[in-house]
């Protein structure tokens, strides 16, 4: 029912694409990260909670239709519906059904609830198209509460050492997860401009997030004393950090699980916190869908599909142009 062509994942019966990497007529967008929501398509369809950020990033004037989770929509006789992917606010798996056959495209997803977005919901299907960003058995996530305990402790230690805490996370998804789960009683929290814009857009759209002032020249070193600054990873090694005086720089990313990746980032601390599924999470999702056939996109595709085949689940790897975002690769030097 779905095919892979040079533009993306295509449904010939419905004449639409899912997360196309080239401009097409009709695009269904799983979520608003830039490798899944690309500009130039005529019409977009996405979850309601994705619309504000999609308009922020792709333009206010895009033609965008939205759906809630579980709301069916018929496109040229193909039944389309969206289900929570638990990746970032508004992220969705796309369920496509025709003549009793069901395919599900996961987009990016994580299993563990993050307190910000609707948690992942497995959708039974015949064919499942899954990501595999962390598809190696070395990736195991701790419960998020433990990670935030570590983060809160790190913040407190920095306070007593007279250092400002700069915590980096991708501006859409990770940053909101940090803001929502950090102990706001410890001290003041500021946001970098890029994160401020996303936060305010989401707040206006109705997401329950605390207001964080933006780091501007209006604040002095004194204002930042003992504070936590939420920033995108691209601030590492830039002069933007100078305004805070002595500080500790940390990154939240699943890649921090491996020491080599952490050392390469050249930060003071790495917290293992990801918006993707870990190894067990990927296996859980695949099994929970009860799919007979699995296509594996971006990540450790060949390894994960070989493992699925050996455990009796028919799987094949697919080359896509996903996985170019900040969170998707350990070797990123700059981020949006």
């Amino acid at each position: 029912m779905l095919q892979f062509n040079e533009n993306g994942i295509y449904c010939p019966d419905g004449n639409f694409y899912i997360d196309p990497w080239k401009p097409v007529g009709r695009a269904i967008t799983t979520h608003a990260h830039s490798d899944h929501a690309r500009p130039g398509s005529k019409h977009y369809l996405a979850h309601r909670d994705s619309s504000a950020v999609m308009r922020l990033r792709l333009g206010a004037d895009i033609s965008l239709q939205t759906l809630g989770y579980g709301e069916p929509l018929a496109i040229n006789g193909v039944k389309v519906s969206l289900y929570p992917a638990g990746h970032i606010p508004g992220s969705a798996q796309v369920r496509v059904e025709k003549g009793g056959e069901v395919w599900v495209v996961s987009g990016d997803y994580k299993i563990q609830p993050d307190g910000v977005c609707e948690p992942f919901e497995p959708v039974p299907c015949h064919t499942f198209i899954t990501e595999s960003t962390f598809g190696l058995p070395v990736y195991h996530w701790q419960p998020q509460s433990l990670v935030f305990q570590d983060i809160n402790n790190w913040w407190r230690q920095n306070q007593s050492a007279g250092k400002v805490s700069v915590l980096c996370g991708y501006s859409l998804g990770k940053a909101q997860r940090i803001v929502k789960n950090i102990d706001l009683g410890i001290g003041r929290v500021f946001s970098h401009g890029a994160i401020f814009n996303v936060n305010e857009t989401l707040r206006e759209a109705g997401l329950d997030l605390p207001f964080l002032p933006k780091v501007t020249d209006g604040f002095s070193k004194k204002d930042f004393e003992g504070a936590l600054i939420v920033a995108p990873p691209s601030v590492g090694g830039t002069t933007w950090l100078k305004r805070f005086g002595p500080h500790s720089l940390a990154v939240c990313s699943g890649w921090m699980q491996v020491r080599g990746n952490a050392r390469r980032r050249n930060v003071d601390r790495g917290f293992v916190l990801s918006d993707h599924a870990d190894w067990d999470g990927l296996l859980y999702a695949v099994k929970a869908t009860a799919a007979e056939k699995v296509f594996v996109t971006h990540g450790f595709t060949s390894i994960f599909s070989r493992y699925l085949n050996e455990t009796g689940i028919q799987a094949a790897e697919v080359k896509t142009e996903f996985g170019t975002e900040e969170e998707d690769t350990p070797n990123t030097e700059k981020a949006a």
Binding site: L136, P137, V138, Y139, H140, Q257, V258, R259, G260, F300, I303, R306, Y307, E310
Partner: peptide, 26 residues
């Protein structure tokens, strides 16, 4: 002990780049 095939362990090792760490993680 990890319940994974040896080839998968080797792939993990190639990605992690350190045997002691790979074992610790799997």
């Amino acid at each position: 002990l990890a319940g994974i095939p040896l080839w998968l362990f080797e792939e993990s090792y190639h990605s992690v780049g350190d045997l002691a760490e790979t074992i610790a993680l799997v």
